[in-house]
């Protein structure tokens, strides 16, 4: 019982993913997002989160899963990793759970279409399969390729 970890569970397509509670700042409903031109397509833009301009990432598109229309249950999970704060758009976020560290196994090569690079491990709890995300990798800014400026207005 010593090595328990509290996690937030969210859905993406048919899979369930988990992020440690201490990396989650809040969970928000969908709200208008200001698009940022000429950035990667998974960066949906920025929102005003109580006075702080926060970037929003569509997690489906980040993991190359086909995008889906946003619904009533769509949520933005505001996470923090190192010095970076960002919001992740997920299909639904509805559960908090304790996971025993011993039940976490190293991830297989590809889980639900997500590259193992972004995963911390997989936890089997009863009949559920939880995929633990490695946020630092997911939020790695080096992965953002900003498009080069167009030839414009000489």
């Amino acid at each position: 019982m010593l090595n328990e970890q509290k996690v937030i569970i969210f859905q993406l397509k048919e899979e369930e993913y988990a992020i440690p509670v201490h990396e989650v700042k809040s969970i928000e409903r969908m709200q208008p997002i200001t698009r940022i031109p000429r950035t990667n397509s998974f960066i949906k833009g920025v929102i005003n989160l109580r006075g702080v301009v926060t970037p929003i990432i569509d997690l489906r598109s980040r993991f190359d899963i086909e995008e889906a229309a946003y619904t009533e249950s769509t949520r933005i999970i505001i996470v923090t990793a190192g010095s970076i704060d960002a919001g992740l758009i997920v299909d639904a976020a509805n559960d908090v759970m304790d996971i025993d560290a011993e039940s976490i196994e190293p991830p297989p090569e590809v889980v639900g279409g997500v590259d193992a690079e972004y995963l911390q491990g997989v936890a089997k709890i009863e009949k559920r399969l939880l995929i633990l995300l490695n946020l630092t990798k997911v939020l790695n800014p080096e992965k953002i390729t900003v498009l080069q400026p167009l030839e414009s207005g000489k």
Partner: peptide, 16 residues
Amino acid sequence: KSLGQYLSSVFAISGA
């Protein structure tokens, strides 16, 4: 306001 560290170099945008 700054766009934050995640979006540190966006073309032609200096902030928000």
